[in-house]
Amino acid sequence: MKRMSLLLIAVVFTMFFVSGCTSKNNQKVVVYEMESFSDIKKDSLTSFTDTEVVNDFVKAFNNAVKMPGIVNMADPEYKVEIGEESYFLWINEESGTIMNLNDTHTIYILSKSSAKTIHELLN
């Protein structure tokens, strides 16, 4: 019984520790304007630390829909860093597309409302 209690306490502590670390990673969104896949536009860094804005980015990116097949895209408009993840972003008022830098053969489409929100934040 004592072992079970200690195990339960250890699991709960670990969950709090991991969730605390995860939320700290998402306290900031960094955006760069891009000239090409490999070149960042000079002096284009923008950081968002407002919790609501960070949550808008996280929600939009987490709810994006994966598109099938391998893609060949034009140069990205933005590079977005959320925590330890980095994405390329193509955006306008009506639509948005992201590509995780760890998988540059796959794109994800933002919902129309998410695209509008992110576009407004960047303009």
Rank of each mutant, 00 (worst) to 15 (best):
A60T: 01
P76L: 04
V65A: 09
L122M: 12
D50H: 11
K59I: 11
E33T: 04
E35Y: 10
P68V: 14
P68N: 11
S113C: 02
D56K: 08
G83T: 11
Y78V: 03
Q27A: 13
L45S: 07
V65S: 08
K116M: 02
V53K: 14
S47Q: 14
Y32Q: 12
E93S: 03
E94I: 06
N102K: 12
A64S: 15
E33R: 12
S19W: 12
T14W: 05
N92Y: 00
Y87V: 02
I107A: 08
L110A: 04
C21S: 06
S114I: 00
D39A: 15
D75F: 14
T51S: 13
L45N: 07
S19A: 11
Y78I: 03
V30W: 11
M34R: 13
F48L: 09
V71D: 03
I40D: 00
G20A: 12
F16L: 15
A10W: 08
P68D: 14
S47K: 12
I91L: 03
L45I: 12
M67Q: 11
V18E: 02
L121H: 13
V53W: 09
T46L: 03
C21M: 13
H119L: 00
T22Y: 06
Y78M: 04
G96E: 02
I109E: 02
E81H: 07
M73D: 08
E94M: 06
K66R: 13
L8Y: 10
E85Q: 14
K42F: 03
S36T: 15
E77N: 03
R3F: 11
T46K: 11
E77A: 04
K59L: 09
E94W: 02
N102A: 11
T106Q: 04
K41I: 01
S5T: 09
A115G: 07
M99R: 09
T97C: 00
T117R: 03
M67H: 05
I109K: 01
E33H: 10
D75V: 12
S111V: 02
S111R: 05
S95V: 02
